[in-house]
Simulated scan of single mutants.
Amino acid sequence: MFTGRKLLIATKHQKEKIIAPLIEKAIGALCFISTAFDTDSLGTFSGEIERKDNALTTLRNKCLLGFQNTNCDLVIASEGSFGAHPTLFFASANEEMIMLKDFKNDIEIVARELSLETNSKGITIEFEKDLIEFAQNIQFPAHGIILKSSEKNPLKIRKDFDSLVELLEQYNRLKSDHSSIYAETDMRAHRNPTRMKVIEKVTYSLIEKIKNCCPNCKTPGFDVVSAQFGLPCALCSLPTRSTLSHLYQCKKCGFQQEKMFPRGIQVEDPTYCDNCNP
């Protein structure tokens, strides 16, 4: 379905360096990028433009933007979010989402990756030595830094520093007009190798989903739509909160199939049983 077709990677931050080789090898599409549109118009990590929609809607809009401006009907886009981990409350996390949108065949395939591998940080700086320490902690200059006149609604934003000398020079210029400066890790993909690794992982997940075709109509993207809990405890046999099965559904023809024991085990360790270990 995809072999030999042109595939647009909707990005302006060099994500194609990671995504294109993997996708071309896996599905035989011919990847390219375009400057005919600006994905930053949907929101920026540096703060100039606020992202108005959630990550999934933003992904769809990126793909649509690419399609409308290049007339390429096969598009991939990715979108990242950063914040507290949903269950490890004191840990920071990077959630990456990636979408393949085939406008010709009306197919949408989405993959997600939640990772603790992130250096997303921000700090208010009053002294030059604190900025130097922050730069060392986030592995600058391999990872970028953004300077802002304030954390919220900054009037001035400075970025794309390639050396400590340049960073300190811009810091002192901003500091001459403000009592403190807000410094944060640059989370744009081309300025953050740690994030790029997570984008690589989610691309592999997308490839797995693309290759998982519907048993009924052979459409790519036969994917999990719900999970059934109740894996029995190995000791007392009562149902636990662990996953018993996954329900797969084709977005094209609606065919459904339940797959038992997705974790490869048929009973759960009593450690995770509410009856044995309340």
Rank of each mutant, 00 (worst) to 15 (best):
P154L: 04
K201P: 06
D130C: 05
I138C: 07
N172A: 08
T203G: 02
N153S: 11
N119E: 13
T185F: 01
L131R: 06
I123T: 13
V198C: 03
F134I: 05
I181V: 13
K156H: 12
F140L: 06
T118G: 00
K121S: 15
Y204L: 14
A111G: 00
R158N: 08
K148W: 00
S120A: 15
M196Y: 09
E184C: 13
I125V: 14
C214Y: 11
P193F: 07
R191Q: 11
V165L: 13
P141G: 09
A183K: 04
E151W: 09
L164C: 09
S205V: 07
N212R: 14
E133M: 12
V110G: 07
T124N: 15
A183C: 09
Q139M: 12
T203N: 03
C214N: 14
N137W: 12
F161D: 02
K129I: 12
E169Q: 14
I109Q: 01
V202H: 01
I181C: 06
Y182F: 15
K211T: 14
C213W: 06
I181T: 06
F134Y: 10
Q170L: 01
E208P: 00
I199V: 15
N216F: 07
H143V: 05
E133S: 15
L168T: 09
A111W: 00
F134A: 05
K148C: 01
M187H: 01
L164H: 08
R158I: 05
F140G: 02
N192S: 11
N212W: 10
I146T: 04
T185N: 01
R191P: 02
T118V: 00
D130S: 11
K152C: 11
P154K: 03
K152T: 15
C213V: 15
K152G: 09
Q136W: 05
I138Y: 04
S115M: 06
K159W: 07
E208I: 02
M196E: 14
T185K: 01
R112Q: 10
L167P: 00
F161S: 03
M196R: 15
Q136I: 09
L155W: 04
M187D: 00
N212V: 10
D130K: 06
R188Y: 03
P154S: 07
E200W: 04
I145Q: 03
P141A: 11
N192P: 08
S149I: 01
K197E: 05
N153M: 11
I107D: 05
N216A: 13
A189W: 01
S149F: 01
M196F: 08
E184L: 11
S179H: 12
D160K: 04
Y171R: 04
S163K: 13
R191K: 14
V202F: 01
I123S: 13
R188I: 02
K197N: 05
F161P: 02
A111R: 00
L147M: 00
K156V: 13
L168W: 10
V110K: 08
E108Q: 11
D130L: 04
Y171V: 03
R173G: 10
E126V: 12
C213S: 15
L131A: 06
L114P: 03
A142C: 10
P141I: 08
A189G: 02
N212P: 10
K121R: 15
D186T: 03
I210F: 12
M187N: 02
E200S: 11
S150G: 08
I199R: 02
K159L: 10
H190T: 01
I138F: 06
I207T: 09
N153T: 12
K211R: 15
